[in-house]
Design a protein around this nucleic acid. Structure first.
Lengths: 201, 201, 201, 201
DNA sequence: CAGTAATCGAGACGGTACGTCCCGTCTTTAT
DNA sequence: ATAAAGACGGGACGTACCGTCTCGATTACTG
């Protein structure tokens, strides 16, 4: 019953799911505190109350452990309100929520800082980033279909324009990301891509 | 006479400028190769052909060494062509040159990745970033004075919009930064801030 | 059952006896080559094919390591032939053997040279020396009981007289200790303590 | 005027005798405190208020410096009372005085401990020791001439017997050397060499 | 329900870099 | 030329983790 796809049950004591979770939890905690480079497997083991070998039995190195831990961070839901301004506002607001409620704001710069030295990490990050860009791109495409943006708008650049101010603040100014930024960014991006900004209030 | 402001010369053998340079050179080289966290003082010493003590005599830790090394990266000259479009094009082009000809593109993400764990580094980076934002801001202010941008434009956001796409590509896409990006960005930023983009060619 | 006095077994991998031995062997070898002050823990680690931490896990510093290494040098067996002359001859001959077959002749002066700066070493040496003096003293006591030496003989001085020429040669003349010295010393010591020396051959 | 044997005056500033003395004084002090191996030229320089180069300009290494410093320790005067017992008593008493009033008791074991690793030091010590043995040997020869000792007495062994108990105490027991030891040693040595000990008191 | 075998916590293992200290040499200005 | 001061390249110090290994104990399924 517990065996997945018609496979045989392995002999011996099965790996504990509770331990798996405990390790991933400890990893996220310590990633936030010490960053990727400062993350010591030894500390993860201690924090999780686990032997080092138990970690190395499941993950070959620090990187896949961190990647699996990061996958526990929720994706941002893609809204579809029928208005590009509202869609953007909504998606940026929930992004800010995620940045505030998860270690992402601390973990991401740390991983980015190591990417040049680790092709595997680089690839993993590419995937992570691509997955978060895709919904934004689709959102802009729908805006073009609705006629809110001109058909020749450079949508990849649009995604860059949306993310840019956040990334700049996240990476360069380090301060907390402010929800007040959302409205001005939304308007600037839409205008920048050739769309019209309706007057609100 | 040789002492500047009424100071006396220190007794003993003076510290060698050539060694100082050699250490900073080795630091930049190794920063590019191994990043901030992977940078070993021991390797810097070996690469520079210097004893470890010689390094610790000048810098208390890895961080101030790296900060001083980074200050050798040239600042971007601020153009003043009379047109915001030309100014921006010029300044972005020379930024790309700097990113290509110095280890900055490798060093910066690495430092940013550590900033959350090191207030001193954070402060140093703030200074570094502020100094590169200032000329861009002044450029936008001149555009407002000339009437190229509306007087109520959010210029800080403007700087974010300019830097954003570069930073996104530098940190998230890791690939080389392409000069072809300049023109679209310039136009989107000007439009985004409420300015008019003249038709070229 | 294997635990002696009701003790429990320690968790974790037990320390290896083979490694313990290898470290002590390397220590004795290097003590002979470089002396106490020239003995580098780093060299012991290299010679024993062991990490430095493995040494520091067992011994807090160079000194206790050296002391334990020295305890591997065999004690001299105490003969009991019924004749003080024969006893002395025998014990001095085996002492010479030990001096020749172990690093003792090199290690001892080196340790003695450091004793004034290290109370712990001083104590350890006192123990070492006392243990080697005791059998000699008992030998002399038996000679008094048998009437070979006068009852008021100063036996502690006797031990000094026996050891003296060896020590003088070992420490001051540095050359190898000659077994030909034994006979004259034995006769001089017995006469010096007031005993009679029978004519041999 | 200051130039010695018809030589020309050296150009430049002459070496200061006061500095020379200060260095040797500091050397003896520190030898006593730290032993030969623990003696740091750096400390000698600091203690003497002198630059390190000033020391290296006069002595090629630690050893010749120590040797010259040791030569400031006075030799023991050789008595000639006409009685071997009195001669020995006298010479041992003044030896004890020297051991008490100079750093010799601390310096000697330290040097002896290094001799196996330094042929030059070994040679220097041989000379030092030979010079102190010679008067004792001559003293014993006069005793043979006077008939106090048998003509076939092994006088080198005699010297060993005299020095032995002192050396044993100095090197092995570390305690202060007691003048009360003198009388018993003298009697044992004379008897040991085949001489007669007259009853005193 | 004993036997089998992989997992578990613990921690020893060989190794590498840390930041400090002192070595013996070199380089500066002042005497 | 010698002096004090102290920078220099080098090497060992004792510490902290790395990733691997070896222990006894635990845990599930098998026969």
């Amino acid at each position: 019953m517990s065996a997945g796809s018609g496979g045989f049950r392995q002999p011996g004591r099965p790996r504990s799911d509770r331990i798996h979770e405990a390790i991933l939890d400890a990893t996220l905690e310590l990633l936030r505190e010490a960053g990727f480079s400062g993350l010591a497997i030894e500390s993860v083991a201690t924090r999780a109350g686990v032997g080092k070998a138990t970690i190395y039995r499941r993950w070959t190195s620090k990187l896949p452990l961190v990647i699996e831990a990061m996958q526990r961070i929720p994706e941002i839901p893609t809204p579809d309100t029928g208005s590009i301004a509202d869609d953007l506002t909504e998606v940026l607001r929930s992004s800010i929520d995620v940045l505030r409620s998860t270690p992402l704001a601390h973990v991401l710069p740390s991983l980015v800082g190591e990417r040049n030295r680790d092709p595997e990490l680089s690839e993993a990050l590419d995937g992570f980033v691509a997955e978060r860009r895709k919904p934004l791109l689709r959102m802009l495409e729908r805006a073009v279909e609705r006629g809110e943006l001109p058909p020749d708008a450079d949508l990849e650049l649009g995604v860059d324009l949306i993310l840019g101010p956040f990334v700049v603040r996240l990476f360069f100014t380090a301060g907390p990301v402010d929800p007040d930024l959302v409205q001005p960014i939304v308007e600037a991006v839409i205008r920048g891509l050739g769309g019209a900004v309706e007057q609100r209030r």
